[in-house]
Design a protein around this nucleic acid. Sequence first.
DNA 1: CTGTTAGCGCTTTCAA
DNA 2: TTGAAAGCGCTAACAG
Lengths: 337, 337
Amino acid sequence: MTIKDIAKECNCGIGTVSRVLNNHPSVSEETREKVLSIVNKYGFVLNKNAKELKMHDNKTIVIFVKGTSNVLLNSMLEVIQKKIETLPYNASVINLDEDGNEALYANNVCYELKPMGMIFLGGSPDRYKEDFLKIKIPCVFISNQAESLENKNLSSVSTDNLLASEFSADYLINKGHKKIGVIGGNLETSEISKIRYQGFLNSMNKAHLQFDFDKAYITSKYSYSGGAKAAKKLIEQYPDLTAIFTMSDTMAIGACRQLKDMNYDIPEKISIIGFDGLSLANFFCPRLTTIKQQEVILAEEGLQILLDSILQNTEAVHKIIPFRLITGESVKDIRAI
Amino acid sequence: MTIKDIAKECNCGIGTVSRVLNNHPSVSEETREKVLSIVNKYGFVLNKNAKELKMHDNKTIVIFVKGTSNVLLNSMLEVIQKKIETLPYNASVINLDEDGNEALYANNVCYELKPMGMIFLGGSPDRYKEDFLKIKIPCVFISNQAESLENKNLSSVSTDNLLASEFSADYLINKGHKKIGVIGGNLETSEISKIRYQGFLNSMNKAHLQFDFDKAYITSKYSYSGGAKAAKKLIEQYPDLTAIFTMSDTMAIGACRQLKDMNYDIPEKISIIGFDGLSLANFFCPRLTTIKQQEVILAEEGLQILLDSILQNTEAVHKIIPFRLITGESVKDIRAI
DNA sequence: CTGTTAGCGCTTTCAA
DNA sequence: TTGAAAGCGCTAACAG
């Protein structure tokens, strides 16, 4: 069933049918109704390939999600997809491993899909700088700062990770913790981990506290099991710590579980602070004290920036979305009274 | 940059270029190399729209995910997407609300995208039977039984939900629980909830235990907050229950949190059993006793069945994947000793 | 083995 | 307001 068949049954030209289906003004009300009625009768829909071939654009927005099973990124994805559905665009989602090179992938996608724009959920702009700079279409990084790329077409919306992690460490320190271990991502491959670590260090330095990296920093995957394994190792290396700074709620949860299994009560014996502010953090036992990233706002703003730069060719924007600390039950105040 | 430009630069016809790019045998090695070299030089890629328009098929597999933020479905999605990437197909994912009508949506998609096949993660085959029967392309339901549709093109791979929930309830009953509340999905709209409820009832009947639906069944969303709200209501209506049968781990976690907040110790005061066997269940405190669905196998088998029916036009298959009960810490044995 | 050509289904001039 | 016709980039049949 093509536009031709519809035209035949309507006794009109294919041009007319096309005009009706594209809401062009110059069609008489009478013809329009006739065409519409028979279109509805068959549930006819224009062939997307033919249309896009002709129109010479494909209205696709590609979304890269880095780190499968990352709850935070997934909830942002959801928001974005839902929004795109209401727009004349198609979303195409590509899931990547935590340590894949999304920039390389993205360059290929540019050739193959020729998308209008791309969204990177949890990418590493700096790490793959060279490859990202090759990209010529509008892109936005969500959750990672990309200002350093200085590319006119690469925007970003992010939580201030540096400040947030500093704030988080400040909180622990203010509650009297001095011996703090860190469960974080791979500092070689994960940019965001590097930034959060820097924020943590800033806080420690401010308080004139030492940090022995080899002893107190454990590299972990952003996952429950990663956090659990890391916690075990950390406790072995640094048995007298009083608090653990983790770089995600998933790590924090894994760590909690592991420590409970080792009979360390939380927060009585050891305090743990998370990062992300997943809804789960508020249902976990104990409720996690954590940094809340505003994922809905991040997602919405990110998409909006991308749309603006697609439609109005605006320059790159780098936006910071505020975070806040959610006080749960996983951190104990150990200051002497 | 089109096939024409390549042809011009190669001093050959567009047919030859097309042949090279599609690995047709009848091209001299010499020409092939010449074409390939200039294709690589520009990083040229065939226009997908033109190709698919011509080929009259689009190699797309559409995946419906019903119930956004459903962890189990998302992990299946991940497996499927990763696999499809290695095949000459494109996956297109559509997220739907827990109570949307995926069948209607799917029918539209058939017209618009003309996919090779569709996968339904967590659909309701029976509920939208009429609409599903209109679908003429190969489909597979993953996690829901679709045998009753008796449609040659609709397959399914699922856990035996009836048996699993009966098994789960048996477990509670064997541990001495008689007053059992249920936190489940909407029985009007969620088929899988209906089946799990039936399994639960079968177990209760077998043990000659009464079940007062109005008092002991709370309808909930499949989410943490849904489970929490439901638990509160359930306890108010049925304060002397000793165990709660939930239809998902997320509900179970929400319920645990709520009950702890109300100072009911789990499992000391109240036992809770989950469903799904998320990895989180094993990290939650207390570890959840739950039914483990083998999501990786479900996903892999489902995709394989779809591919078979696309390629070899095989008849509908309805496969059951075994479950198993994971013993956690959320159920107490209350039998008198 | 290779070049030419007819469409795939659509949008959009151009004339009428 | 309308129909006819050109052509988007590609594949495959045909002729050489």
